[in-house]
Amino acid sequence: MKVNEYKMASSIEEALTTLATSPTEYRMLAGGTDVLPRFRDNLIKEDKILDLTLLKAELGFITMDETGALHIGAMATHQEIVENEIIKEHFSVLQDACRTVGSIQIKNRGTIGGNIMNASPAGDALPVLIAADAEVILISVGGERRMLLEDFLLGPGKTAIKSDEILKEIVLPKVYHVSRSNVKYEGQYRKLGGRKALTISIASVAVLKDHENKIRVAYGALSPRIQRASAVEDYVNSAAELDMDSLYQVVEKCVNPLSDVRASAEYRKKVAANLTRMILMQMRYDFKDESGEGGC
């Protein structure tokens, strides 16, 4: 679609008023790292752009409240998250996820809000956020509403946003302590791509340990919708002893991958289980079978 209208909002208020009074929908532009290539490939149905760049002043924050919950403004970039000291100290697994986004240039432009709104099943920040029960705050002229990110993401490119809303912030409840120094044991994100950098995920997995020492798991690029892998969580949290066959079976219940030009569904399933096992072993969970070498 050709762009017929381009508007740059200078404040949240202006953006919301614009949305509330527009008879047709705008395509929101934050960092542009997904929107611009999609425009070029004619994959965007809207013909109007609302540029949110100037909302950075209001929505670029990263803070921690008195309850210990983290608040990340939708316009915070991946690179800002990677470099942020609060996140480094309290939820550094998110830094590991954001570090795997594209290139330095893309991390400098791309925002966490954009990663969510793009709603790609392969979105690099999403499995960690969903495993952590992150919530999103949506705002319109009528006020704010808050919901679980897991419920907000409905499928590839689909979210529960309304046409007069924008994504304001992401809230991470205080149930983890994943600092830079203990990240290996308390929570991990692992992305598998076709190369070491600048690549779209073939499969990814986030495994977190909450304050009750319970495991939480979410997979990326393995299902149309990213959701908590509750069967895997239940198995790991309740089994007396872990074994690979059982893990493989529960992982298979939680994923529903595609075969595409990047990888086959069969490979994605195998690797989902293997990555889970790899992380669990690094988090000092023992498997009764094998030495940890095999992966079939």
Partner: peptide
Amino acid sequence: NTLTGEVT
């Protein structure tokens, strides 16, 4: 990597 098949 025998779990992912990655060659480094």
